[in-house]
Amino acid sequence: MSTLSNILFMTIRLSTPIVLAALACSITKKAGLLNMGAEALMLMAALIGVLVSAWTQSLIIGLVAGLASSILITLIICYVSFDLKCDLNLTNISMNNAVIGGTVFIMYLVTGQKSVTAGILNSKTMPTVNIPIIKDIPFIGEVISGHNVMTYIAIVMIVAVWFLLYKTVLGLRIRCVGENPMAAESVGISSKKIWYISYALSGLVAGMGGVFLSMGYLSWFARDMMGGRGFMAMAAMNIANGEPVGSAVNALLFGLAQAFGTFIQRFNINADLILAFPYMFAVLLISVLTFIRQRQEKQHRLNMIKAREQKV
């Protein structure tokens, strides 16, 4: 493996959970909701996946339970926000805190440990896949082949989410509600129902990111193991304005920044800079893109005014 292919391989591996979480955020964003709870969804799925697969010694049951748990969390968020009318962002933030503490609590009840389940629980992990023909191609094979099966599922999910949002009736309804809930209501679409559905789907996709971290990338659960990936995903999604493909590309860029941060250490660059690099990169990307977008909007408004003046 050459250095470059190693970095790219690392990028894909690091990006997988961020891509999945970004897709999850993009589904709710299109329904007009900001999913700040992606961190909580991933964390819960990661823990429950490990616990259940260790109990049942079955990978599939563990996965299903992990995904179900994150969907359950979204339903709680939805019920509190849309039925009990609590502010959505506040609900998400408090859910994040509750799950960060709650997962440690559950882990302690079950295993008696408070920091990692490694060594206590022997959970199943998802296998890595060597793609038959591609793996023999010199450079591309080294980068693309040999990843965890969830990485390939993530790539499929990019297309699936795009298809869902732009090519299906449900997707159309989600986007309608996102644009204007009142207008959607006036043609008989229940916006509350759509919000519930989009949040549950978001829970499913984010849950995949969670189980990937604890049952694919690593083989154990550690407290607070998401390490801000949910928030990086939210940033990635916001930069792309909720577009699934754009969100995934941004998530990949964040992964590249992390891999690059690891790589440049061999040149002994100042440590503080290295540790801050992925986050600085996110801030920089957001600033630049917002600047460009605002200029475009300004230009657009100016053109509108000009067009109106010409009419007059």
Binding site: M10, R13, L14, M225, Q258, F263, A271
Partner: peptide, 18 residues
């Protein structure tokens, strides 16, 4: 070689990989 550790076990795994 001396690498400064990052924030979680997954990142440490990548650094070890490097």
């Amino acid at each position: 070689y001396y690498y400064y550790g990052m924030a979680d076990a997954a990142a440490w795994q990548e650094q070890a990989s490097s």
